[in-house]
Design a protein around this nucleic acid. Structure first.
Length: 131
DNA sequence: GTTCTGACTAGGA
DNA sequence: CTCCTAGCCAGAA
C-alpha cells in the first residue's frame, strides 16, 4: 500500500526528516546508558553531523519528551551540554542518576562505562525500517 | 537561491 | 586542566 502523499508532506512540515530520525534512534537508547551526539550521527549514517543532532534535540517537542529519552545524549567529553531553560542541566543529571548513570569528577559521566554500543545487527534492521 | 544559528568535536595554545 | 579555533551540518529565516 501506498501512503498518502499529503500525509507525509504534512509530517515533514512538523518535523524534518533528519530530526525525526534522531528521535527514532534516541528512543532506542537503553535505560542506564548514554550516547554522544557524534554517536547518534554515526548511527544515522552521518558521522559528521553531530552538531545537527544537537540542534534536532534542542527542537524536541515537549510532547515527545516522555517518549524520547533525551537525557541519555551527552557530549564527547562525557558532560551535559544542554544549558537551556526548559529541561535544565540539573534535571538531566537527576534523570540519569535515577536510572543508574553516576557522575564522577563532579559533572562527568564515564563513557567507558556507560556508553551504549548501539543496536545489534537484527535490531539495526528493524530500526532502519522505522525511519 | 543565500545567510545565520547552535544540546558538536578534534586539535592546538 | 581551560580556552579558542576551524570544520562540519541540518534547519530556519
Amino acid at each position: 500500500m501506498k501512503a498518502a502523499p499529503g500525509g507525509a508532506r504534512q509530517r515533514d512540515r512538523l518535523q524534518p526528516k533528519f530530526a525525526r530520525a534522531v528521535y527514532a534512534v534516541v528512543r532506542h537508547v537503553p535505560r542506564g546508558t548514554v550516547v554522544t551526539y557524534g554517536q547518534v550521527a554515526a548511527m544515522l549514517g552521518h558521522p559528521r553531523a553531530a552538531r545537527a543532532v544537537g540542534t534536532a534535540l534542542s527542537r524536541l517537542p515537549r510532547s515527545l519528551a516522555t517518549r524520547v529519552p533525551w537525557q541519555r545524549v551527552i557530549n564527547s567529553a562525557g558532560k551535559i551540554s544542554y544549558k537551556g531553560d526548559f529541561f535544565r542541566p540539573e534535571i538531566q543529571r537527576r534523570l540519569l542518576e535515577a536510572e543508574g548513570v553516576l557522575f564522577s569528577d563532579g559533572e562527568r559521566v564515564n563513557l567507558k562505562k556507560y556508553r551504549w554500543a548501539g543496536p545489534s545487527r537484527e535490531k539495526r534492521v528493524r530500526l532502519k525500517v522505522e525511519l
